[in-house]
Amino acid sequence: MLPVALENASKMLKYLTLSTKAYITVMQLHKKVDKGRLMEVIKEFTGRIYQKPPVRSSVKRALRTKTIYELEVLEINYPCVLLKITCEHGTYVRKLIHDIGEVLGVGAHMRELRRVRTGPFKEDKSLVTMHQLSEAVYIYKELNDESTLKKYIMPGEYMVSHLPKIVATDSAVASITYGADLAIPGVVALHEKIRKGDDVAIFTLKGEIVATGIAQKHTEEVLESKKGIAVKTKRVIMERKIYPRKTRI
């Protein structure tokens, strides 16, 4: 699966790139190993692991740590092992499998790989095939019926659905689109458990994405304070001039 962002929604891609990924993969073992030993090694590769990026990669080849949230054996059919991996962004699955093979002492390589999750996007009923999409485009362009295509294009807001959220007053929206930070008097509602330094998403009362930013206060501090900056604006998503600027006093 691959979330594809259109126009302005591309500005939120970073939050998907940096999000949790899950893959289904086929690992081929180069020699048979005992099942108990395999499960033991798989378990060792859960949690924090060290990984050196492969030779052909786009990042510096320094040893780095990545977190493997889940490593599940779905099926064993020697020499192949079907795995589901849920991991931190930037984990090289091919390398992970190679390393598992090294620790097992028999060697292993990745035969197939399919991404099944990118942050909030999973393989569920929101998935659209290229075929479905091209058919919907045809129905829209040739038959003037936009209903199918509308079902396939989700509001861009879903791309930051995994972030903690804050709702701003109408009067705060315009200045944020010009790059201003969100001050506490402009906050209507927010998620619990926001921590200072968290990436957060700012929405209008109608549910439209305005911008992303960095929380400057914990949720409790926002509730207790009358003034000060709640969110430092980082990336403005909403176009300017949709909401009116405050009237000058």
Binding site: L6, T129, D170
Partner: peptide, 27 residues
Amino acid sequence: TSPNYGKHPEERTINELMKLGVINLDK
């Protein structure tokens, strides 16, 4: 919120969705 500006994301027209939308593509 004023009904005079802005729009509920689920009420966007197809052209508006194409400016701020995402497709969960089965690649």
